[in-house]
Write a protein that binds this DNA or RNA. Sequence first.
DNA 1: TATCCGACCTGTTGGC
DNA 2: TGCCAACAGGTCGGAT
Length: 288
Amino acid sequence: MPELPEVEVVRRGLERWVGGRTVAAVEVLHPRAIRRHPAGPVDFAAQLTGQRLGTARRRGKYLWLPVGEGNRAVLAHLGMSGQLLVQPPAAPDEKHLRIRIRFADTEGTELRFVDQRTFGGLSLHDTVPGDPDGLPDVIAHIARDPLDPAFDDAAFHAALRRRRTTVKRALLDQSLISGVGNIYADEALWRTRLHYDRPTATLTRPRTAELLLHIREVMNEALAAGGTSFDSLYVNVNGQSGYFDRSLDAYGREDEPCRRCGTAMRRHPWMNRSSYFCPRCQRPPRAA
DNA sequence: TATCCGACCTGTTGGC
DNA sequence: TGCCAACAGGTCGGAT
């Protein structure tokens, strides 16, 4: 499923294939795909048609394209199964095609939003006045992601110390740090030898620094692998990127030997999800 | 105010 | 072979 590195691959694809093009028509095939656009599908199509799209931007797992003069933007979230594909109009419709955007040019491609589980979607929003990136107002509350040069490591550490929560919950809290999902949280915690239930208030500054280092490391490795499987026509990885099979050290490895110490990895149910960890390298906190 | 947790959604997998 | 339950998980909003 799309995580931050995959979303960045999509952003690069949009930059290459969609930026600068003018919308000729919009077709909404499933209303849920624009549920974050309260004015509805007709309004969504009307507002976009005739507008020129700018350079794709990203924060965490959110993507957006500036619209017209730049005080509005189309916001996209891929959810768990969303894809943004650049396709020739003659290509057969995908089974889960939700939105189609045609362009007023002769490049011979259209943009398609395809989403099996409909957790993702597109919507149109005003941008934060004066924001240099044209950040859509509805995502102004989310934190910068760890690959953003403006991410503030010291402020992140201070926020962790203030919170009465545990480290994995904090990693998934987008108001603290964006772009980290269940998979990369488990990977970074394994690399840092931290148990997911460790209270954030007990983290020292060096431990937080180490955690951030490993988050960035695993994301950059994934981004590099995602780039290699990138087909220039499609603006999305296909979900079967070889990265996950080859390089995951924790996620999905229940009962397999820890790549560091050989101990059988464990899976614990956690917040209606799973946490994978090494019981030897990642000791639970005493209170847990 | 901060934190927690269920609901949303559908294809796949595994058990009976 | 067919049916059903469990599972995957990012985000939102209601509950505590």
